[in-house]
């Protein structure tokens, strides 16, 4: 979950609702994330300093809070991606031919 959000933020700064729409779009609505989960993850990532937030400009009515990935976040993402590939290879070895 954390990695998915970091991945989306690698493409540029986004606000919360935009990320939930992006996840739905990327997966053709197969994976609909609850915003509550999303904001909980934001809190967690921000606490670990993997993402940062700032107030963006106004869009119909209120200020919007944008999230941006930090250098630490990028490093963390690359590490996570590497680990995932290794895990995937390992599982493939055992699952092939079943």
């Amino acid at each position: 979950m954390d990695s998915i959000i970091l991945r989306l933020l690698m493409d540029g700064d986004k606000y919360g609702y935009q990320i939930s729409k992006d996840i739905a779009a990327w997966t053709n609505d197969a994976f609909l994330i609850k915003e509550a989960t999303l904001y909980a993850v934001f809190q967690r990532l921000e606490r670990r300093e993997l993402i940062e937030s700032y107030q963006g400009e106004k869009s119909h009515g209120g200020k919007r809070k944008y999230y941006t990935i930090t250098t630490l976040g990028k490093a963390y993402f690359h590490e996570a991606a590497k680990e995932w590939k290794e895990a995937k290879q390992l599982i493939d070895v055992f699952m092939e031919g079943v």
Partner: peptide
């Protein structure tokens, strides 16, 4: 505020 914005 953020949650409300998102819901709206």
């Amino acid at each position: 505020e953020e949650i409300k914005d998102s819901m709206e």
